[in-house]
Write a protein that binds this DNA or RNA. Structure first.
Lengths: 218, 218
DNA sequence: TACATGATTTAGATGAGTCTAAAAATAAAT
DNA sequence: ATTTATTTTTAGACTCATCTAAATCATGTA
């Protein structure tokens, strides 16, 4: 009945990759994400499949079952709640928390999670802006999202940033990505995850490095 | 360089058993404590020995090396700090925290531990009265200890209890173990860990179940 | 001192998670 | 529609942590 840390990490990775892919996740994509070999992934997918956590047909990629989705979302909930705790109560910097939360997310105690959530005042977003699902696995109404996660074709507007260096802000100003600026996401290039926007009728190319630091509406 | 959870738990168990034994820990004692088989213990001791975490000669029991001691004490530090957090900030009851802390103690991040310690105001005792070692592995000056952990021969006095039921307090009153009462620990019986005290010149036999709920000076 | 008893260790297996190397299936290109 | 390239899976092996069963050591007692 228990899932190992490794299994949980695979489920989380499948969840995150399928967000973007919108469909099945390939063995190779998973291998890269998990920093392991494709053959190891195949082995694990068989195991997860036998535990009914994923739907897996060989050569056809993998998707989460309802059961697997529940586990993945719960891990994400725990990860993000711990990040809030680390930043708001222990004085960690935004960028120091990920690795620690990566460990804490596997602590298994429903009571702990609910009490932590209450202690933190039921936060809706983590320090990076990631939405925190509630105890039932429901995400907050998707009002904001990172530009690098916005679906292609969406019309949207700039809500904020997660990088506050002068050079970054100056760059945004220069290309016209000011707060409140409306735009449409025309295309995303898989090889470097850069995006093409249409902004005041003008095309604009934005690198992934920039896109991932911009919150936009959804 | 990394120790698995299992290795950490063995080190902790060796540490705790050697507190009482005052010397080497036997394979069987360890097997019982770890709820596993003696053969598994032997395997693990070989591994820990090859990592220089324990001194182990076959058939001769095991002791921690300085390196192993450091690891064990650090685990205990983390365990107890998390217990303080759970009780004082998340509203856990004294008796609900152990299993959760058992998991949290393995989260590995020196920065986290130091910030947690600071957040909690450098507590010296956990909710059960267990002393919390500092970052250098030093325990607070041993002013209090559970009666079941007091060395044989010690003169001491009652400082408090961790069990507050009426029946327990009534029992203490009846046998004369009031707050501040002085006594000497005459003997400890290994088979049931009960102890014999000398109190106002009168002998008193106290069961382990009672002794483990009484704080005494040291 | 030799024997019986209990504690401990070895030998051999198993399951989880991983790897490399090789085979098989799919997708792309001519 | 073949061939080529890419992706994915199998086969076999390794480590960690565990087990059972059998062998070995240590010790107390006769």
């Amino acid at each position: 009945m228990e899932n190992s840390f490794t299994e949980e990490n695979y489920l989380k990775a499948i969840y995150k990759l399928s967000r973007r892919t919108n469909g099945g996740v390939s063995t190779n994509a998973l291998a890269e994400r998990m920093d392991t070999k494709a053959s190891s992934v195949t082995d694990m997918l068989k195991r997860l499949s036998s535990k009914k956590l994923v739907d897996y047909q060989k050569y056809q990629g993998v998707t989460l079952t309802d059961k697997g989705l529940k586990v993945a979302v719960d891990i994400i909930r725990k990860h993000r709640l711990w990040e809030v705790f680390l930043v708001e109560h222990l004085g960690f910097g935004e960028h120091e928390v990920h690795d620690v939360a990566e460990q804490m997310e596997h602590v298994s105690s429903p009571l702990l999670v609910e009490r932590l959530d209450k202690f933190l005042n039921h936060p809706k977003y983590d320090p990076h802006g990631g939405p925190i699902p509630d105890a039932d696995g429901k995400f907050p109404a998707p009002t904001r999202v990172k530009l690098d996660e916005l679906p292609v074709g969406k019309q949207s507007k700039v809500l904020g940033v997660t990088e506050h260096s002068d050079s970054f802000l100056a760059y945004l100003k220069k290309v016209g990505l000011d707060l409140g600026q409306q735009f449409t996401l025309i295309d995303r290039h898989d090889f470097d995850r850069s995006v093409d926007l249409l902004l005041n009728g003008e095309p604009l190319h934005v690198s992934h490095e920039v896109a991932r630091h911009i919150f936009v509406s959804n």
